[in-house]
Amino acid sequence: MTVMIRRCFLGCLLLLLAAGVAAAEGPQGLKIVSVKPGNGGIYAIVSVEFPKAWSDPAFTVEVNGKAVRMRQVGGGFSGDRSMADLMFMPGRAAKQSVAVKCAAGGRKTEARAGFDWTAAPFVAVLGHTGNREMVAAKEKLTIAAVNVTGVRVFFNGKEIHAKPSAGDIETLTFDPAWKKGRNVLTINADKWDGGMIAKNFTFFDLGEGGTLPPGQSALVHLGREGTKSGPFYDVKVEGDSVALAQGTTVRRDIVDRDGWLVSETWVAAELRARKEGTAKVRVFVKPHFLQNMELEREFTITVAGE
């Protein structure tokens, strides 16, 4: 009798412990909260929640039954639940299903959901804005294209023939035939829905012999946007042929070391050509608020009619 009582007591104790663990994990396990477009509709972000008691959860994502690359881009917690935002490339189909699998603390679980998807066409020049952008060196340009086909590239009206790379992000690198002054890059591509996307990018080569027409403005990129600690930038113009219009920020798209398309915020200064003549432009940088402002570069702009 004593042995049976002990066994019953131990059994009840184990049930209470199990109930306590279940209560700590919350009433639900892994749950998909939403699937939304991210980064301009290039990627999708699936938001999940799960018990906070799960330690070091490892996630994987499948789309239509196929494993895809995933990056965690957000998270948090509320009460006894934790949250995670997982970014992935959905692909082309309009009707899709996503499965999020999680391994944590020796357990494996998954959640599934269906979602509607409209892929947004995207073309850009990596590391550049192409918005009246001043270039200091005759560098190669790399184009990135997503969710489009039949990419065609023209530089100053001449078609560029280069072999694009394969993958989620199609890239095409070429060596432009830069000319002094204004240069125009045009990218045409076919959308998946049968339409077409066309974008123009403008660059100014204002090196020796390059000119800026009166009334035209150009942007000089100063550097990445900093924090309250720095870096800080300043621009000085000598000569009344060019006026410093305003400071601004621009977005530059890049592919990071892990192969994801991301945007960086850069500080830029807009320079406006007022009248024919020359002006000297000096760019100063203060890397940290404890350091001094130092001259980083200087150049001369010639204003003349085209």
Rank of each mutant, 00 (worst) to 15 (best):
M1E: 09
M1N: 09
V3D: 14
R7Y: 12
C8K: 14
L10A: 06
G11Y: 08
G11K: 03
C12M: 10
L13T: 13
L13V: 13
L14E: 12
L17I: 14
A18W: 06
G20C: 12
A23M: 14
I32R: 02
S34V: 13
V35L: 10
P37A: 06
P37R: 08
G38C: 03
Y43G: 03
Y43H: 06
V48W: 05
A53V: 14
D56Y: 14
N64C: 05
A67M: 07
R69M: 08
R71V: 13
Q72A: 07
S78P: 00
R81L: 13
D85V: 01
D85L: 08
G91N: 07
A93D: 15
V100E: 05
G105R: 12
T109H: 03
A111P: 08
A111E: 07
F115P: 08
F115S: 03
D116Y: 05
L126S: 10
H128D: 04
T129D: 09
G130H: 11
G130S: 09
R132P: 00
A136C: 00
I143H: 08
A144R: 08
V146G: 07
V148D: 04
T149I: 11
T149G: 08
T149N: 09
G150V: 01
R152Y: 04
G157C: 05
K158N: 12
K158Q: 15
I160S: 05
A162C: 05
A166I: 01
G167D: 02
T173P: 06
T173S: 13
P176H: 06
A177P: 07
K179L: 00
K179P: 02
K180H: 02
G181H: 08
I187N: 04
N188E: 15
A189Q: 04
D190V: 02
W192S: 10
D193P: 04
G194F: 11
I197N: 02
T202R: 07
F204Q: 05
L206C: 07
E208C: 00
T211F: 09
S217G: 12
A218H: 02
V220C: 01
H221W: 02
H221L: 15
H221G: 04
L222G: 07
R224V: 09
E225K: 15
T227K: 09
P231K: 04
Y233S: 03
D234F: 12
K236Y: 04
D240G: 13
L244S: 06
G247E: 13
T248W: 01
D256K: 03
L261N: 02
V262H: 07
W266P: 04
W266K: 06
A269C: 12
R274S: 10
R274T: 14
K275W: 02
E276G: 11
G277F: 01
A279F: 05
V281C: 02
F284T: 06
F284I: 01
K286R: 15
F289Q: 10
L290I: 10
L295V: 08
E296M: 12
R297C: 07
T300K: 10
A304M: 10
